[in-house]
């Protein structure tokens, strides 16, 4: 795939969606690598006792998937991530997550070519579970 150049990117453009399907085993792996052993991510019986249908995907894992959607579109040797944020609106359970984004703004500031994207993580029904944003700076070739 040829690298994207700044001039080819348009405000309002959607990035290609990325699909992830974390299983409860994937949450155990993430708990190990992030050393986040909160019960809500691995103890299904506990979560059911609180009224949830299943364990919850780590917020940081969802955010990781959102960033993966961006770096799949603009790899790190083409653009540098300056800032990102996420609001976890609803708990996400193991299963299909669709990560997407849209170019909200394209600017040049002090010689830096910047892209601001809105990001989202949707469940299989298309409901936005996590919303976010990211700012990227295009790197010189």
């Amino acid at each position: 795939m040829l690298p994207l150049i700044f001039e080819e990117i348009a405000e309002g453009q959607d990035i290609p969606p990325l699909v992830r399907e974390p299983s409860s085993q994937d949450l155990v792996k993430f708990a190990a690598v992030a050393e986040d052993f909160s019960r809500q991510h691995w103890d299904r019986a506990y979560m059911e006792s609180l009224g949830f249908p299943d364990v919850i995907v780590h917020g940081w894992l969802t955010l990781t998937y959102m960033c993966q959607a961006v770096t799949a579109w603009l790899p790190p040797d083409h653009a540098r991530i300056l800032r990102y944020e996420a609001r976890h609106k609803r708990p996400i359970f193991p299963g299909r997550i669709i990560l997407g984004g849209r170019v909200a703004r394209k600017t040049e500031e002090n010689g830096a070519r910047l892209l601001d994207l809105d990001l989202w993580a949707q469940d299989a029904e298309g409901q936005v579970m996590t919303s976010g944003a990211i700012r990227l700076q295009m790197l010189d070739p």
Partner: peptide
Amino acid sequence: YTGETERLFFDEDHARKGRF
């Protein structure tokens, strides 16, 4: 463990040839 496919994050031989 996060299912990363971008080689700059895990493939040393690949990453050594690039800008980083």
